[in-house]
Simulated scan of single mutants.
Amino acid sequence: MAPKSIRKAISDAFDGLVDEDLERFCFQLLDRKGKRVPESWVMGKSRARITAVLVRTYTEKGALKVVLESLRELGFNQNAKELVEATKHLTSSTPNAKRKNKARGASGAASSEPDRAGDEHFIDKHRNELIDRVSNIDGILDDLLQAGVIKQEMYDKIRARSTTQDMMRDLYSGPLKAGEASKDILYNSLKKNEKYLMNDLKKK
């Protein structure tokens, strides 16, 4: 059965590597030019953990590219070929898929119109509570990066913050000032990543 996500396909690909080869893969990953993951995040970690770190660092499609490049550089061409085949249906865009994507938000969930109190956007209305109560910031930042609300440099800067509250404040003081569109994208990401918090705030 074909995997339902790129993340699952990457994890399955790691299952095809013996421990020694997985360790070689991690060393190869640490030697990459450009954005790299800290050694402590991947060395000696489980296959599922390494997959999660890659997706969180590069996004799903970015992680797929990194894994394929690393596998090929190590000579694991068959593993790379199998991963390409396993993700072909997840990375190709058909006309129908493109039409559907236009009706979907950047978070991958169906987009919806944010609630507004008069002319005030939901994101502005609940600013303080969102800053204090959001916890799944990694998923939100990944969505904003993928949607182009933030660039890689800003993404790295925000993630370097020590608390989730500071990360949210950075979003409010920077990218969210761009206009309603960026707030709409954040709104849809929050619906996906902070379902219970959003349900609670909508009651207020």
Rank of each mutant, 00 (worst) to 15 (best):
M1D: 08
M1E: 10
P3Y: 10
R7D: 11
K8Q: 11
I10P: 05
S11Q: 14
D15T: 01
D15Q: 10
G16E: 13
V18M: 04
L22S: 02
L22G: 02
F25L: 06
F25G: 03
Q28S: 14
R32V: 07
R36G: 00
V37T: 01
P38L: 06
M43E: 05
G44L: 08
K45R: 14
R47E: 00
R47Y: 05
I50D: 07
A52P: 07
A52R: 13
L54K: 11
V55N: 05
T57M: 01
Y58E: 00
T59M: 01
T59Y: 01
T59E: 04
E60H: 08
V67E: 02
L68E: 07
L71E: 03
L71I: 01
L71D: 00
E73H: 08
G75Y: 13
G75T: 00
A80C: 06
E85G: 00
T87S: 06
K88M: 11
K88H: 13
S93V: 15
T94F: 10
T94K: 05
P95D: 01
N96I: 11
K100S: 14
K100I: 15
N101L: 15
K102T: 01
A103W: 12
R104N: 06
G105S: 14
A106Y: 15
A106W: 15
S107L: 04
S107C: 10
G108F: 06
A109G: 07
A109P: 03
S111T: 14
S112N: 07
S112C: 06
D115P: 00
D115S: 04
D115Q: 01
R116N: 05
R116A: 08
G118T: 00
D119M: 08
E120Q: 04
F122G: 00
I123M: 06
R127G: 07
N128H: 08
N128Q: 10
L130W: 15
I131Y: 14
D132L: 10
D132K: 09
D132H: 06
V134H: 13
N136I: 04
D138K: 07
G139S: 11
I140L: 08
L144Y: 09
L145Y: 04
L145S: 02
Q146V: 04
Q146S: 02
Q146W: 09
Q146K: 11
A147C: 05
G148M: 09
K151F: 07
Y155P: 03
D156N: 09
K157F: 12
R159P: 02
R159V: 02
A160N: 09
R161N: 12
R161V: 12
S162Q: 09
T163V: 12
D166L: 05
D166G: 05
M167T: 09
R169S: 02
D170W: 13
L171V: 07
P175I: 00
L176F: 15
S182I: 02
S182N: 12
K183A: 05
D184E: 14
I185G: 12
I185N: 14
I185Q: 15
L186M: 14
N188T: 13
L190Y: 08
K191V: 05
K192R: 14
N193S: 10
N193K: 08
E194W: 09
K195R: 14
N199T: 13
N199R: 15
N199W: 15
D200G: 15
D200L: 15
L201D: 06
L201R: 09
